[in-house]
Amino acid sequence: MIKKLVNFELRFVQKLISFKLQYTKYSSYQGEISEAAENIINRDFHSEKPNERVLTDITEFSIPAGKVYLSPIVDCFDGMIPSWTVSTNPNADLVNSMLDDYHSKLKEDEKPIVHSDRGCHYRWPGWINRMNKYGYTRSMSKKGCSPDNSACEGFFGRMKNEMFYGRNFVGVTIETFVEIINDYIIWYNTKRIKASLGYLSPMEYRQSLGLI
């Protein structure tokens, strides 16, 4: 009887470990590979104008056809996603090309604070060199403190609730899923209303202020 109980408990623990490994959230943290930037944002996600304070991070989508990674810029002014990249590989090019694209859309005098977690992508030379070249200010969350970038995590949560969770992606190719992500973000920017913006979308809100 005792032996059977021990065997049952062992199988139960093994299942728990397997479940935890299966649902572990993607993390780009690889240790302290370079000097971290100061946490300038310090959980103050309010901005008086566009491209003043922006957030970034990487999130993973897993579908039967494979894994897809999204790297966006989230503007603290109104939640607009002015730039994003999607790839099947969470490598340096995913974030570097996103930053290059974002920079191409800014005015010469716009030099935002760019806040991220301590993921390796934001500690590698490619990212740091671009930040310096563009004159942007780096800001980083404290180690293992997700609330420091909660506004960006909030976007990921809303996005996945609205276009990912509860849907069946069996038979959907990677290429089609990338289109689904792109279409969602375009809709999010142009059509999805927010109470905090007077029930306008980010694009409509900026148009109402004469910003675009």
Rank of each mutant, 00 (worst) to 15 (best):
A36L: 14
A37K: 12
N39R: 09
N39C: 10
N39T: 06
I40K: 12
I41C: 03
I41H: 02
N42G: 00
D44L: 08
E48D: 15
K49G: 12
P50R: 09
E52W: 06
E52G: 03
R53L: 12
R53W: 10
R53D: 10
R53K: 15
L55D: 01
I58L: 00
I58G: 08
I58M: 01
T59R: 03
F61K: 06
S62C: 12
I63K: 04
A65S: 10
A65H: 03
A65R: 05
K67R: 13
V68E: 00
V68A: 06
V68W: 00
Y69M: 09
Y69T: 00
L70D: 01
L70E: 04
S71F: 02
P72F: 01
P72I: 01
V74D: 11
V74C: 11
D75W: 06
D75R: 05
D75V: 02
C76S: 13
F77K: 10
G79Q: 03
M80C: 10
P82S: 10
P82W: 09
P82G: 09
P82K: 11
P82D: 08
W84P: 07
W84A: 04
T85C: 13
V86Q: 03
S87Q: 07
S87F: 06
T88P: 00
N89S: 15
P90T: 11
N91Y: 09
D93F: 07
L94G: 05
S97A: 12
